[in-house]
Design a protein around this nucleic acid. Structure first.
Lengths: 256, 256
DNA sequence: AAAGTGGCTCACGTTACGTGAGAGTCAAGT
DNA sequence: ACTTGACTCTCACGTAACGTGAGCCACTTT
């Protein structure tokens, strides 16, 4: 208030951010975005901090999260703004790449229609429509463990939409939590708790033995794509996760 | 049936396309995607033609259309599959570019948080979140007719979400209809009717005089971006629209 | 016949607002 | 002080696109 920050009414903020006034009311009602202040007549006023939070809400919405999920993420004590922004950027990058796949499907379909048949299979007609996470998990699993592919496919297919969303959110949160705990030793109980979550998370897709989990930890460091993935969330995260996993395995696959 | 095309049950199609069985039932109920056949026990069966239609539905959904809108588009006698696919591709290209804008907003926000203030304005915090059509219309109008900018901004802001969607759909349809009529002379009544729609469409944003409409027609040919836009929908469309507009103006801004 | 998988219709519930209504608030102009 | 225009509040019904569960039938394999 004394620092000269501007404050906004609902009308002003709705124009600034491109959201409706009804949306701002709704977000206040559900505790997702509380105004900085209310006048004695009930007017809502928002300041810079709320602007950052609204931006985060809008990023998470763009990526596909529901409002309740967003609230849980933002209210988590481990939430860190810069880390979250980096994560969003990575997701948007994936999405841009993913759009290429849809465009390829278009090209193939046009060729099919112009040159008449044989240019696209029935299955290829829908390539690119599934969320990029689904496709990337399928692809990576098939590459790494071809034996597991049918199991993974089956599990993914049988997941309800809601279960899938929760799983996706969990993966996101695990990364963020690890990023925020990176300054702690890997045997710290908080770190190990998150590693356990990571382990359980993977087990949703296939059975993960200790041997396989350790192998995965090494792959996080050795495989350029995995390493880039974790480093883009937070520099040093791949090595941190690698050590955390080995520690978890040393503890007998439990939180000591 | 005699041509060897495979047919699919709801389960098979849901797996193939990645949509739920409930969705297929729903689309049948609302007449959006009717099965090719029903058994005497009520089982639904889909063939190749339905696969193409479902693909279209999924493209339009991805782009942001509602189901009722999609139905109207697909059921229109002027609907052409290849033209529609080209149009989708263009929209997806725009979207990929648009994602870059969101990523720029992320970079700016991170800089703001790390270097502390002055790196991003309140307004810039939300750049990239508005639909790309809204932003491109604003941008183009400001570049072409700075005097009109406040008027356009005001009209766009006051449009309801529904009105905006209808306007967006109309722009899309006008392009598709023109593309499908491109083999007709520009003075044909069908062509002129669509030009009238085009004229009325523009008037939703600002007052368009004959002089200005003719100027716009020239710009569609001279401006690389506009020309590329229309050519990507259908080769030759920019010139066709140019001539059609001049003809419309010659007819006193009416359909003769 | 039993089991497993799949199909049908019916219908309530969900998420995130959009929309309209009625009434109060604020600031500028007369 | 009054009027006007823009803005704010709360309340509440309605919407789009399914998700989910239920009860019962259909088909194939053992």
């Amino acid at each position: 208030m004394e620092n000269g920050y501007q404050q906004y009414s609902v009308k002003q903020l709705s124009v600034l951010a491109g959201v409706s006034i009804r949306t701002l009311h709704h977000y206040d009602d559900i505790g997702l975005l509380k105004p900085a202040a209310r006048s004695d007549k009930g007017y809502r006023f928002y300041r810079r901090e709320e602007l950052f939070r609204l931006q985060q809400i809008m990023f998470y919405k763009t990526i596909g999260y529901g409002l309740e999920e967003i609230k849980e993420i933002l209210d988590n004590e481990n939430f860190d703004l810069i880390t979250a922004l980096r994560s969003h950027k990575k997701v948007l990058k994936d999405r841009a790449v993913h759009l290429k796949k849809l465009m390829t499907t278009i090209d193939k379909t046009i060729n099919e229609l112009k040159d008449k048949e044989g240019m696209i299979t029935d299955k290829e007609m829908y390539e690119g429509f599934q969320p990029e996470e689904v496709e990337s998990i399928k692809k990576e699993t098939i590459e790494r463990w071809p034996d597991e592919a049918p199991q993974v496919e089956e599990r993914i297919r049988n997941m309800s939409k809601q279960a899938w969303k929760e799983t996706k959110q969990e993966a996101e949160e695990i990364n963020l939590w690890l990023a925020n705990l990176i300054h702690k030793p890997v045997d710290h109980i908080d770190v190990q708790k998150v590693i356990k979550l990571h382990f359980d998370h993977l087990n949703k897709f296939y059975e993960v033995s200790e041997e396989r989990y350790r192998g995965l930890a090494e792959m996080y460091l050795q495989d350029d794509r995995f390493k880039a993935h974790y480093e883009s969330v937070k520099p040093g995260l791949a090595a941190f996760l690698n050590k955390g996993i080995h520690q978890f395995c040393d503890n007998g696959m439990e939180v000591a």
